[in-house]
């Protein structure tokens, strides 16, 4: 069955709200407006204003309230419109949600799910184009997920809600209109494994969220040159699934990480370090990465495209690893 990423998220949220009275959705414009990305369209009318709770522009306040409500026995899904605004709520996410279990000696868990859109690609300029997945993936106590497929958009919310600990969900803004085939296995989604999305024997492309599809496009082009690129969709950014990454890299002996975050201190850097630690002697070439250029995101279309990882830059990085030139 063909379905959009947006519709898959909508169905997942609908299931959660319909099945568990403790679940409620809270955030900016989730109710009357129908969700800034139209994910919760119609929910306000169906579930009412208590459970589809419009919040004022108080990211720190309502994210903290979601954390408190989770401590108080509810299962809140807090929607922060975008990762850009989540910086205003960072204190509550890091200093409260992530730490409470540990600081209390295991007495209090915080079963909150915090969703946000992320990423660039729509000419929204510097303040609305961030990718800060790595900031959250840095923090012990958080689980960080990045559904990139319709299966995961449909399937990852349920285990996120079942988790007794805070889960941060990143939805790449370019993916909402993407259409895909919903597999019969969508309900088996977990919060711990990466997935090989396309097999290949010559190089491993490691990506997450929006860059998964750029890596897939690059793999397609490489295939036409006789190069087999394996594509790993990380799915879960904390904890990272080292086993899947290393098994692939040991087979292909080469890896390129595709990450929309800025290069310095990026998730790509972390993954490179882990490959170095765990699979150094299996490598035939230094691990490479394609990240965003270290400039604030420009508005002009051609400059934004140049700043972001693109299939062409991934292809170029692979060819360089293999000592080949572009055809």
């Amino acid at each position: 069955m063909k379905i959009t990423y947006r519709e898959a998220l909508r169905q997942a949220l609908h299931d959660a709200l319909a099945c568990d009275p403790r679940v409620f959705l809270m955030g900016e414009d989730v109710g009357k407006y129908g969700g800034s990305y139209a994910v919760s369209k119609g929910f306000f009318e169906e579930f009412g204003p208590e459970r589809i709770r419009d919040a004022p522009l108080s990211e720190l306040g309502f994210v903290g309230a979601g954390i408190g409500a989770a401590l108080g026995g509810m299962r809140p899904i807090v929607e922060v419109m975008t990762v850009n605004f989540s910086l205003l709520a960072l204190d509550q996410i890091v200093n409260t949600a992530a730490l409470y279990r540990h600081m209390s000696g295991g007495q209090f868990s915080v079963p909150v799910v915090i969703r946000m859109s992320t990423g660039a690609g729509r000419q929204l300029a510097a303040q609305h184009s961030h990718s800060f997945e790595n900031w959250y993936a840095h923090v012990p106590g958080l689980t960080v997920i990045a559904p990139a497929t319709v299966d995961d958009a449909r399937g990852m919310l349920a285990p996120a809600l079942a988790s007794p600990d805070p889960v941060i969900v990143f939805e790449h803004a370019m993916l909402y209109p993407m259409e895909g085939e919903l597999s019969p296995n969508w309900a088996k989604a977990d919060l711990c494994s990466a997935r090989v999305l396309r097999p290949g024997g010559d190089v491993t492309l490691i990506a997450y969220g929006g860059t998964v599809w750029k890596a897939m496009a690059a793999a397609e082009r490489l295939a036409s040159q006789g190069i087999g690129a394996e594509v790993i969709d990380l799915r879960v950014l904390r904890p990272l699934d080292d086993a899947t990454i290393m098994a692939s890299v040991r087979r292909t002996r080469r890896a390129v990480i595709v990450d929309e975050g800025w290069r310095s201190g990026s998730l790509a850097a972390e993954i490179m370090a882990r490959i170095m630690e765990q699979a150094f002697y299996d490598l035939d070439a230094p691990v490479a990465r394609v990240c965003s250029a270290e400039v604030p995101m420009p508005y002009a279309k051609h400059l934004e495209e140049a700043a972001l990882p693109q299939p062409e830059s991934v292809v170029a990085a692979v060819l360089q690893l293999l000592g080949k030139t572009a055809q």
Binding site: L60, G61, A65, G68, A69, A70, L71, G72, M74
Partner: peptide
């Protein structure tokens, strides 16, 4: 304060 607000909301 936000935490307490959320406990009260629950």
């Amino acid at each position: 304060l936000p935490l307490a607000t959320g406990l009260a909301l629950a």
